[in-house]
Design a protein around this nucleic acid. Structure first.
Lengths: 221, 221
DNA sequence: TGCGTAAGTAACTAGTTGGTGACTTAAAGC
DNA sequence: GCTTTAAGTCACCAACTAGTTACTTACGCA
Protein backbone atom coordinates (compact mmCIF):
# COMPACT_ATOMS: atom_id res chain seq x y z
CA UNK A 1 0.00 0.00 0.00
CA UNK A 2 1.42 3.37 -1.03
CA UNK A 3 1.63 6.37 1.25
CA UNK A 4 -1.15 8.12 -0.63
CA UNK A 5 -3.36 5.06 -0.34
CA UNK A 6 -2.78 4.98 3.40
CA UNK A 7 -3.76 8.62 3.60
CA UNK A 8 -6.87 7.94 1.56
CA UNK A 9 -7.87 5.09 3.80
CA UNK A 10 -7.41 7.28 6.83
CA UNK A 11 -9.68 9.89 5.27
CA UNK A 12 -12.32 7.30 4.48
CA UNK A 13 -12.17 6.00 8.00
CA UNK A 14 -12.49 9.50 9.33
CA UNK A 15 -15.67 10.03 7.30
CA UNK A 16 -17.09 6.95 8.99
CA UNK A 17 -17.98 9.17 11.95
CA UNK A 18 -20.28 8.12 14.72
CA UNK A 19 -23.68 9.71 14.92
CA UNK A 20 -26.26 7.63 16.69
CA UNK A 21 -29.10 10.17 16.49
CA UNK A 22 -28.74 10.70 12.78
CA UNK A 23 -28.33 6.97 12.10
CA UNK A 24 -31.48 6.19 14.05
CA UNK A 25 -33.34 8.90 12.14
CA UNK A 26 -32.10 7.66 8.78
CA UNK A 27 -33.13 4.10 9.55
CA UNK A 28 -36.59 5.23 10.66
CA UNK A 29 -37.08 7.33 7.52
CA UNK A 30 -35.97 4.50 5.25
CA UNK A 31 -38.17 2.00 7.11
CA UNK A 32 -41.18 4.32 6.86
CA UNK A 33 -40.69 4.54 3.12
CA UNK A 34 -40.18 0.80 2.64
CA UNK A 35 -43.05 -0.36 4.87
CA UNK A 36 -45.36 2.24 3.34
CA UNK A 37 -44.73 1.15 -0.23
CA UNK A 38 -44.35 -2.60 0.31
CA UNK A 39 -46.43 -3.54 3.36
CA UNK A 40 -44.94 -5.57 6.17
CA UNK A 41 -44.27 -8.93 4.56
CA UNK A 42 -42.92 -7.55 1.29
CA UNK A 43 -40.70 -5.00 3.02
CA UNK A 44 -37.03 -6.07 2.99
CA UNK A 45 -34.75 -5.38 5.93
CA UNK A 46 -31.74 -5.32 3.60
CA UNK A 47 -33.44 -2.73 1.43
CA UNK A 48 -34.14 -0.53 4.46
CA UNK A 49 -30.48 -0.70 5.47
CA UNK A 50 -29.39 0.08 1.93
CA UNK A 51 -31.69 3.09 1.66
CA UNK A 52 -30.60 4.37 5.04
CA UNK A 53 -26.98 4.01 3.97
CA UNK A 54 -26.09 2.09 7.12
CA UNK A 55 -24.95 -1.42 7.92
CA UNK A 56 -27.82 -3.82 8.53
CA UNK A 57 -26.31 -4.81 11.85
CA UNK A 58 -26.98 -1.29 13.18
CA UNK A 59 -30.64 -1.65 12.37
CA UNK A 60 -30.81 -4.62 14.74
CA UNK A 61 -28.66 -2.73 17.21
CA UNK A 62 -31.11 0.15 17.39
CA UNK A 63 -34.45 -1.52 16.85
CA UNK A 64 -34.13 -5.20 17.79
CA UNK A 65 -35.98 -6.83 14.91
CA UNK A 66 -38.30 -6.21 11.98
CA UNK A 67 -41.44 -6.17 14.13
CA UNK A 68 -40.06 -3.69 16.62
CA UNK A 69 -38.83 -1.53 13.75
CA UNK A 70 -42.31 -1.48 12.29
CA UNK A 71 -43.71 -0.56 15.70
CA UNK A 72 -41.24 2.34 15.91
CA UNK A 73 -42.38 3.51 12.47
CA UNK A 74 -46.02 3.43 13.54
CA UNK A 75 -45.29 5.26 16.76
CA UNK A 76 -43.55 8.00 14.83
CA UNK A 77 -46.50 8.28 12.45
CA UNK A 78 -48.85 8.41 15.43
CA UNK A 79 -46.71 11.17 16.92
CA UNK A 80 -46.78 13.08 13.62
CA UNK A 81 -50.57 12.88 13.48
CA UNK A 82 -50.91 14.05 17.09
CA UNK A 83 -48.47 16.93 16.62
CA UNK A 84 -49.97 18.23 13.41
CA UNK A 85 -53.37 17.98 15.11
CA UNK A 86 -52.18 20.20 17.92
CA UNK A 87 -51.10 22.88 15.48
CA UNK A 88 -54.74 23.13 14.41
CA UNK A 89 -56.02 26.13 16.32
CA UNK A 90 -59.78 25.83 16.10
CA UNK A 91 -60.48 28.15 19.03
CA UNK A 92 -59.35 31.27 17.21
CA UNK A 93 -62.14 31.04 14.68
CA UNK A 94 -65.90 31.07 14.71
CA UNK A 95 -67.56 27.64 14.78
CA UNK A 96 -68.40 27.59 11.06
CA UNK A 97 -64.92 28.66 10.02
CA UNK A 98 -63.47 26.17 12.52
CA UNK A 99 -65.43 23.36 10.89
CA UNK A 100 -64.19 24.42 7.47
CA UNK A 101 -60.61 24.52 8.73
CA UNK A 102 -60.97 21.06 10.26
CA UNK A 103 -62.06 19.54 6.95
CA UNK A 104 -59.26 21.31 5.08
CA UNK A 105 -56.74 20.13 7.63
CA UNK A 106 -57.70 16.46 7.33
CA UNK A 107 -57.84 16.67 3.55
CA UNK A 108 -54.42 18.31 3.26
CA UNK A 109 -52.85 16.01 5.81
CA UNK A 110 -53.71 12.76 4.02
CA UNK A 111 -53.09 14.27 0.60
CA UNK A 112 -49.58 15.28 1.72
CA UNK A 113 -48.90 12.13 3.77
CA UNK A 114 -49.96 9.14 1.71
CA UNK A 115 -47.53 7.02 3.74
CA UNK A 116 -49.78 7.41 6.77
CA UNK A 117 -52.59 5.73 4.85
CA UNK A 118 -50.71 2.62 3.74
CA UNK A 119 -48.99 2.22 7.11
CA UNK A 120 -52.29 2.45 8.99
CA UNK A 121 -53.85 -0.03 6.57
CA UNK A 122 -51.00 -2.47 7.14
CA UNK A 123 -51.36 -2.09 10.90
CA UNK A 124 -55.11 -2.67 10.69
CA UNK A 125 -54.51 -5.84 8.68
CA UNK A 126 -52.67 -7.11 11.75
CA UNK A 127 -55.37 -5.89 14.14
CA UNK A 128 -53.24 -3.03 15.46
CA UNK A 129 -51.03 -5.45 17.33
CA UNK A 130 -48.05 -3.07 17.23
CA UNK A 131 -49.94 0.01 18.40
CA UNK A 132 -52.03 -1.83 20.96
CA UNK A 133 -48.97 -2.88 22.91
CA UNK A 134 -47.19 0.42 22.49
CA UNK A 135 -46.74 2.36 25.74
CA UNK A 136 -46.64 5.72 23.96
CA UNK A 137 -49.87 5.14 22.11
CA UNK A 138 -51.82 3.74 25.00
CA UNK A 139 -50.97 6.62 27.32
CA UNK A 140 -50.94 9.68 25.04
CA UNK A 141 -54.22 10.26 23.22
CA UNK A 142 -54.65 12.45 20.15
CA UNK A 143 -56.07 15.90 20.85
CA UNK A 144 -58.85 15.57 18.30
CA UNK A 145 -61.69 14.42 20.49
CA UNK A 146 -61.62 17.23 23.03
CA UNK A 147 -60.78 19.82 20.36
CA UNK A 148 -63.74 18.84 18.22
CA UNK A 149 -66.03 18.49 21.23
CA UNK A 150 -65.26 22.08 22.18
CA UNK A 151 -65.88 23.26 18.62
CA UNK A 152 -69.25 21.52 18.56
CA UNK A 153 -70.26 22.97 21.93
CA UNK A 154 -69.41 26.48 20.79
CA UNK A 155 -71.30 25.98 17.55
CA UNK A 156 -74.40 24.68 19.29
CA UNK A 157 -74.28 27.53 21.82
CA UNK A 158 -74.03 30.05 18.99
CA UNK A 159 -76.97 28.48 17.21
CA UNK A 160 -74.82 27.60 14.19
CA UNK A 161 -74.76 23.84 14.80
CA UNK A 162 -77.53 21.44 15.64
CA UNK A 163 -77.07 19.36 18.80
CA UNK A 164 -76.72 15.56 18.78
CA UNK A 165 -73.52 15.11 16.79
CA UNK A 166 -70.67 13.57 18.79
CA UNK A 167 -67.04 14.56 18.34
CA UNK A 168 -65.98 11.00 17.50
CA UNK A 169 -68.74 10.62 14.91
CA UNK A 170 -67.82 13.90 13.24
CA UNK A 171 -64.13 13.02 13.21
CA UNK A 172 -64.66 9.57 11.73
CA UNK A 173 -67.07 11.00 9.15
CA UNK A 174 -64.56 13.54 7.91
CA UNK A 175 -61.53 11.27 7.99
CA UNK A 176 -63.53 8.37 6.55
CA UNK A 177 -64.60 10.29 3.47
CA UNK A 178 -61.12 11.72 2.91
CA UNK A 179 -59.19 8.58 3.74
CA UNK A 180 -61.34 6.10 1.80
CA UNK A 181 -61.29 8.25 -1.31
CA UNK A 182 -57.48 8.43 -1.27
CA UNK A 183 -56.72 4.96 0.06
CA UNK A 184 -58.98 3.14 -2.40
CA UNK A 185 -58.43 5.54 -5.26
CA UNK A 186 -56.76 2.91 -7.46
CA UNK A 187 -59.50 0.28 -7.29
CA UNK A 188 -62.28 2.89 -7.38
CA UNK A 189 -60.74 4.33 -10.54
CA UNK A 190 -60.83 0.86 -12.13
CA UNK A 191 -64.40 0.24 -10.93
CA UNK A 192 -65.79 3.47 -12.33
CA UNK A 193 -63.49 3.59 -15.35
CA UNK A 194 -62.19 7.10 -14.70
CA UNK A 195 -59.16 8.70 -13.07
CA UNK A 196 -60.22 9.78 -9.60
CA UNK A 197 -56.77 11.20 -8.90
CA UNK A 198 -57.05 13.80 -11.64
CA UNK A 199 -56.86 17.38 -10.26
CA UNK A 200 -60.49 18.10 -11.11
CA UNK A 201 -61.70 14.91 -9.45
CA UNK A 202 -59.72 15.71 -6.31
CA UNK A 203 -61.08 19.25 -6.15
CA UNK A 204 -64.58 17.97 -6.67
CA UNK A 205 -64.32 15.47 -3.84
CA UNK A 206 -62.80 18.03 -1.49
CA UNK A 207 -65.83 20.27 -2.09
CA UNK A 208 -68.17 17.32 -1.64
CA UNK A 209 -66.71 16.52 1.79
CA UNK A 210 -67.26 20.13 2.87
CA UNK A 211 -70.83 20.02 1.68
CA UNK A 212 -71.63 16.67 3.31
CA UNK A 213 -70.13 17.70 6.64
CA UNK A 214 -71.92 21.03 6.66
CA UNK A 215 -75.25 19.37 5.95
CA UNK A 216 -74.53 16.96 8.79
CA UNK A 217 -73.63 19.58 11.38
CA UNK A 218 -75.12 22.94 10.50
CA UNK A 219 -78.45 23.90 12.00
CA UNK A 220 -81.30 24.51 9.57
CA UNK A 221 -81.42 28.23 8.80
CA UNK B 1 -48.44 -56.76 2.29
CA UNK B 2 -51.56 -58.68 3.28
CA UNK B 3 -54.61 -59.03 1.11
CA UNK B 4 -56.61 -56.67 3.34
CA UNK B 5 -53.84 -54.08 3.15
CA UNK B 6 -53.88 -54.32 -0.62
CA UNK B 7 -57.60 -53.78 -0.59
CA UNK B 8 -57.19 -50.79 1.72
CA UNK B 9 -54.62 -49.23 -0.54
CA UNK B 10 -56.86 -49.73 -3.50
CA UNK B 11 -59.67 -47.96 -1.63
CA UNK B 12 -57.39 -45.08 -0.74
CA UNK B 13 -56.30 -44.75 -4.31
CA UNK B 14 -59.87 -44.79 -5.44
CA UNK B 15 -60.72 -41.93 -3.06
CA UNK B 16 -58.01 -39.89 -4.75
CA UNK B 17 -60.56 -39.05 -7.42
CA UNK B 18 -60.10 -36.33 -9.96
CA UNK B 19 -62.18 -33.23 -9.67
CA UNK B 20 -60.71 -30.22 -11.41
CA UNK B 21 -63.60 -27.84 -10.67
CA UNK B 22 -63.70 -28.60 -6.98
CA UNK B 23 -59.92 -28.46 -6.68
CA UNK B 24 -59.83 -25.08 -8.34
CA UNK B 25 -62.58 -23.85 -6.06
CA UNK B 26 -60.83 -25.15 -2.94
CA UNK B 27 -57.57 -23.47 -3.91
CA UNK B 28 -59.35 -20.18 -4.57
CA UNK B 29 -61.17 -20.31 -1.23
CA UNK B 30 -57.99 -21.12 0.67
CA UNK B 31 -56.08 -18.38 -1.16
CA UNK B 32 -58.80 -15.85 -0.42
CA UNK B 33 -58.57 -16.67 3.26
CA UNK B 34 -54.77 -16.60 3.36
CA UNK B 35 -54.31 -13.39 1.34
CA UNK B 36 -57.07 -11.68 3.31
CA UNK B 37 -55.56 -12.41 6.70
CA UNK B 38 -51.86 -12.11 5.81
CA UNK B 39 -51.60 -9.65 2.93
CA UNK B 40 -49.63 -10.53 -0.19
CA UNK B 41 -46.06 -10.76 1.06
CA UNK B 42 -46.88 -12.60 4.28
CA UNK B 43 -49.20 -15.06 2.56
CA UNK B 44 -47.58 -18.49 2.13
CA UNK B 45 -48.19 -20.61 -0.94
CA UNK B 46 -47.52 -23.79 1.06
CA UNK B 47 -50.12 -22.72 3.61
CA UNK B 48 -52.70 -22.14 0.86
CA UNK B 49 -52.05 -25.64 -0.53
CA UNK B 50 -52.29 -27.15 2.96
CA UNK B 51 -55.58 -25.39 3.69
CA UNK B 52 -57.00 -26.40 0.33
CA UNK B 53 -55.97 -30.00 1.01
CA UNK B 54 -54.29 -30.27 -2.37
CA UNK B 55 -50.76 -30.76 -3.55
CA UNK B 56 -48.89 -27.49 -4.05
CA UNK B 57 -47.96 -28.55 -7.56
CA UNK B 58 -51.64 -28.33 -8.56
CA UNK B 59 -51.80 -24.74 -7.44
CA UNK B 60 -49.15 -23.89 -10.02
CA UNK B 61 -50.89 -26.10 -12.54
CA UNK B 62 -54.14 -24.15 -12.22
CA UNK B 63 -52.98 -20.62 -11.49
CA UNK B 64 -49.41 -20.24 -12.78
CA UNK B 65 -47.83 -18.41 -9.87
CA UNK B 66 -48.51 -16.48 -6.68
CA UNK B 67 -49.27 -13.21 -8.48
CA UNK B 68 -51.73 -14.77 -10.88
CA UNK B 69 -53.36 -16.60 -7.99
CA UNK B 70 -53.83 -13.30 -6.19
CA UNK B 71 -55.29 -11.80 -9.33
CA UNK B 72 -57.78 -14.67 -9.55
CA UNK B 73 -58.76 -14.05 -5.93
CA UNK B 74 -59.37 -10.36 -6.64
CA UNK B 75 -61.38 -11.13 -9.75
CA UNK B 76 -63.60 -13.46 -7.76
CA UNK B 77 -64.11 -10.80 -5.09
CA UNK B 78 -64.92 -8.28 -7.80
CA UNK B 79 -67.44 -10.72 -9.24
CA UNK B 80 -68.99 -11.26 -5.82
CA UNK B 81 -69.39 -7.52 -5.30
CA UNK B 82 -70.97 -7.09 -8.74
CA UNK B 83 -73.34 -10.01 -8.27
CA UNK B 84 -74.55 -9.03 -4.83
CA UNK B 85 -75.04 -5.53 -6.20
CA UNK B 86 -77.31 -6.85 -8.92
CA UNK B 87 -79.52 -8.54 -6.37
CA UNK B 88 -80.25 -5.12 -4.92
CA UNK B 89 -83.60 -4.22 -6.44
CA UNK B 90 -83.89 -0.49 -5.85
CA UNK B 91 -86.56 0.05 -8.49
CA UNK B 92 -89.26 -1.77 -6.54
CA UNK B 93 -89.23 0.80 -3.76
CA UNK B 94 -89.88 4.49 -3.42
CA UNK B 95 -86.79 6.71 -3.61
CA UNK B 96 -86.53 7.25 0.15
CA UNK B 97 -86.88 3.55 0.93
CA UNK B 98 -84.46 2.78 -1.91
CA UNK B 99 -81.85 5.03 -0.33
CA UNK B 100 -82.34 3.34 3.03
CA UNK B 101 -81.98 -0.09 1.42
CA UNK B 102 -78.81 0.99 -0.36
CA UNK B 103 -77.16 2.05 2.90
CA UNK B 104 -78.24 -1.17 4.63
CA UNK B 105 -76.96 -3.21 1.73
CA UNK B 106 -73.46 -1.67 1.82
CA UNK B 107 -73.33 -1.89 5.61
CA UNK B 108 -74.32 -5.55 5.68
CA UNK B 109 -72.06 -6.48 2.80
CA UNK B 110 -68.85 -5.21 4.38
CA UNK B 111 -69.87 -6.38 7.83
CA UNK B 112 -70.40 -9.91 6.45
CA UNK B 113 -67.42 -9.86 4.08
CA UNK B 114 -64.45 -8.49 5.99
CA UNK B 115 -62.18 -10.33 3.55
CA UNK B 116 -63.23 -7.93 0.80
CA UNK B 117 -61.85 -5.06 2.84
CA UNK B 118 -58.38 -6.45 3.50
CA UNK B 119 -58.04 -7.79 -0.04
CA UNK B 120 -58.99 -4.44 -1.57
CA UNK B 121 -56.57 -2.68 0.77
CA UNK B 122 -53.77 -5.00 -0.28
CA UNK B 123 -54.58 -4.39 -3.93
CA UNK B 124 -54.60 -0.64 -3.42
CA UNK B 125 -51.20 -0.84 -1.75
CA UNK B 126 -49.96 -2.16 -5.07
CA UNK B 127 -51.85 0.47 -7.08
CA UNK B 128 -54.43 -2.01 -8.36
CA UNK B 129 -51.88 -3.61 -10.66
CA UNK B 130 -53.72 -6.95 -10.64
CA UNK B 131 -57.17 -5.53 -11.35
CA UNK B 132 -55.98 -2.94 -13.84
CA UNK B 133 -54.64 -5.61 -16.17
CA UNK B 134 -57.54 -7.98 -15.66
CA UNK B 135 -59.69 -8.46 -18.75
CA UNK B 136 -62.79 -9.28 -16.71
CA UNK B 137 -62.55 -6.18 -14.59
CA UNK B 138 -61.79 -3.77 -17.39
CA UNK B 139 -64.73 -4.90 -19.50
CA UNK B 140 -67.49 -5.63 -16.98
CA UNK B 141 -68.43 -2.67 -14.82
CA UNK B 142 -70.34 -2.89 -11.57
CA UNK B 143 -74.02 -2.02 -11.81
CA UNK B 144 -73.88 0.56 -9.02
CA UNK B 145 -73.44 3.72 -11.01
CA UNK B 146 -76.47 3.39 -13.27
CA UNK B 147 -78.59 1.88 -10.50
CA UNK B 148 -77.91 4.78 -8.17
CA UNK B 149 -78.23 7.34 -10.94
CA UNK B 150 -81.73 6.05 -11.65
CA UNK B 151 -82.62 6.15 -7.96
CA UNK B 152 -81.45 9.75 -7.70
CA UNK B 153 -83.39 10.78 -10.80
CA UNK B 154 -86.57 9.24 -9.47
CA UNK B 155 -86.05 10.91 -6.11
CA UNK B 156 -85.48 14.33 -7.63
CA UNK B 157 -88.50 13.94 -9.91
CA UNK B 158 -90.67 13.00 -6.91
CA UNK B 159 -89.42 16.01 -4.97
CA UNK B 160 -87.90 13.79 -2.30
CA UNK B 161 -84.25 14.44 -3.21
CA UNK B 162 -82.44 17.65 -3.99
CA UNK B 163 -80.62 17.82 -7.33
CA UNK B 164 -76.84 18.13 -7.70
CA UNK B 165 -75.69 14.90 -6.06
CA UNK B 166 -73.92 12.54 -8.47
CA UNK B 167 -74.23 8.77 -8.31
CA UNK B 168 -70.51 8.26 -7.89
CA UNK B 169 -70.30 10.82 -5.07
CA UNK B 170 -73.22 9.21 -3.24
CA UNK B 171 -71.75 5.74 -3.65
CA UNK B 172 -68.28 6.73 -2.41
CA UNK B 173 -69.82 8.63 0.49
CA UNK B 174 -71.79 5.62 1.68
CA UNK B 175 -69.05 3.04 1.11
CA UNK B 176 -66.40 5.40 2.48
CA UNK B 177 -68.16 5.85 5.81
CA UNK B 178 -68.93 2.13 6.14
CA UNK B 179 -65.60 0.85 4.85
CA UNK B 180 -63.33 3.22 6.78
CA UNK B 181 -65.12 2.54 10.05
CA UNK B 182 -64.69 -1.22 9.63
CA UNK B 183 -61.28 -1.26 7.95
CA UNK B 184 -59.62 1.06 10.45
CA UNK B 185 -61.60 -0.14 13.44
CA UNK B 186 -58.53 -1.51 15.22
CA UNK B 187 -56.41 1.66 15.11
CA UNK B 188 -59.42 3.92 15.71
CA UNK B 189 -60.26 1.89 18.81
CA UNK B 190 -56.71 2.43 20.09
CA UNK B 191 -56.80 6.15 19.22
CA UNK B 192 -60.06 6.82 21.01
CA UNK B 193 -59.50 4.31 23.79
CA UNK B 194 -62.80 2.48 23.32
CA UNK B 195 -64.03 -0.63 21.53
CA UNK B 196 -65.60 0.51 18.27
CA UNK B 197 -66.50 -3.06 17.36
CA UNK B 198 -68.83 -3.47 20.34
CA UNK B 199 -72.43 -4.16 19.24
CA UNK B 200 -73.65 -0.79 20.52
CA UNK B 201 -70.89 1.09 18.74
CA UNK B 202 -71.67 -0.72 15.47
CA UNK B 203 -75.39 0.00 15.77
CA UNK B 204 -74.65 3.62 16.53
CA UNK B 205 -72.44 4.04 13.46
CA UNK B 206 -74.94 2.31 11.20
CA UNK B 207 -77.56 4.84 12.31
CA UNK B 208 -75.11 7.69 11.85
CA UNK B 209 -74.43 6.68 8.23
CA UNK B 210 -78.18 6.70 7.53
CA UNK B 211 -78.53 10.14 9.05
CA UNK B 212 -75.54 11.62 7.23
CA UNK B 213 -76.64 10.26 3.87
CA UNK B 214 -80.21 11.45 4.33
CA UNK B 215 -79.05 14.94 5.22
CA UNK B 216 -76.86 14.89 2.13
CA UNK B 217 -79.54 13.78 -0.31
CA UNK B 218 -82.98 14.57 1.00
CA UNK B 219 -84.65 17.81 -0.06
CA UNK B 220 -85.45 20.27 2.70
CA UNK B 221 -89.05 19.72 3.74
C1' DT C 1 -4.22 9.24 28.71
C1' DG C 2 -6.04 5.20 28.75
C1' DC C 3 -10.08 2.48 29.39
C1' DG C 4 -14.87 0.90 28.95
C1' DT C 5 -18.70 1.23 26.18
C1' DA C 6 -21.27 1.97 22.31
C1' DA C 7 -21.13 2.74 17.16
C1' DG C 8 -19.87 0.56 13.19
C1' DT C 9 -18.25 -3.28 9.63
C1' DA C 10 -17.90 -7.64 7.02
C1' DA C 11 -18.95 -12.25 6.37
C1' DC C 12 -21.92 -15.72 7.31
C1' DT C 13 -25.94 -19.01 8.27
C1' DA C 14 -30.04 -21.53 9.37
C1' DG C 15 -34.30 -21.79 7.87
C1' DT C 16 -37.59 -20.62 4.65
C1' DT C 17 -40.15 -20.04 0.26
C1' DG C 18 -41.71 -19.72 -4.43
C1' DG C 19 -41.25 -22.59 -7.93
C1' DT C 20 -39.87 -27.33 -10.82
C1' DG C 21 -38.59 -31.84 -12.96
C1' DA C 22 -39.88 -36.34 -13.42
C1' DC C 23 -43.12 -39.34 -12.64
C1' DT C 24 -47.92 -41.94 -11.90
C1' DT C 25 -52.78 -42.48 -12.61
C1' DA C 26 -57.59 -41.40 -13.75
C1' DA C 27 -60.72 -40.53 -17.25
C1' DA C 28 -62.51 -38.61 -21.78
C1' DG C 29 -62.61 -39.62 -26.77
C1' DC C 30 -62.04 -42.61 -30.57
C1' DG D 1 -59.76 -51.66 -25.47
C1' DC D 2 -56.35 -48.25 -26.38
C1' DT D 3 -54.42 -43.88 -26.62
C1' DT D 4 -54.02 -39.22 -25.42
C1' DT D 5 -54.54 -35.76 -22.18
C1' DA D 6 -55.02 -33.73 -17.96
C1' DA D 7 -55.20 -34.38 -12.78
C1' DG D 8 -52.41 -35.53 -9.18
C1' DT D 9 -47.97 -37.03 -6.32
C1' DC D 10 -43.25 -36.74 -4.58
C1' DA D 11 -38.91 -35.14 -3.90
C1' DC D 12 -36.14 -31.47 -4.73
C1' DC D 13 -33.67 -26.79 -5.31
C1' DA D 14 -31.84 -22.20 -5.97
C1' DA D 15 -32.56 -17.88 -4.21
C1' DC D 16 -33.65 -15.34 -0.69
C1' DT D 17 -33.98 -13.25 4.03
C1' DA D 18 -34.22 -12.22 8.92
C1' DG D 19 -31.07 -12.42 12.11
C1' DT D 20 -25.95 -13.42 14.10
C1' DT D 21 -21.05 -14.02 15.15
C1' DA D 22 -16.83 -12.08 15.65
C1' DC D 23 -14.49 -8.37 15.07
C1' DT D 24 -12.73 -3.14 14.72
C1' DT D 25 -12.95 1.69 15.83
C1' DA D 26 -14.55 6.13 17.73
C1' DC D 27 -15.67 8.73 21.69
C1' DG D 28 -17.04 10.14 26.50
C1' DC D 29 -15.29 10.16 30.86
C1' DA D 30 -12.42 9.07 35.20
Amino acid sequence: MSVSEQALEKTELRTRKRNPDISRERILAAATEEFATMGFGDARVDEIARRAGINKRMLYHYFGNKDELFQAVLESIYETICKSGQSLDLDSFGPRQGLTNLVDFVWNYYLDNPQSITLLNTENLHNARHLRFSEKTRTVHPPFESMIAKLLERGVAAGDFRPGVSAVALYITIVGMVYYYLSNNATLSVFFGRDLRAPDALKHWHRHVHETVERLVLAAP
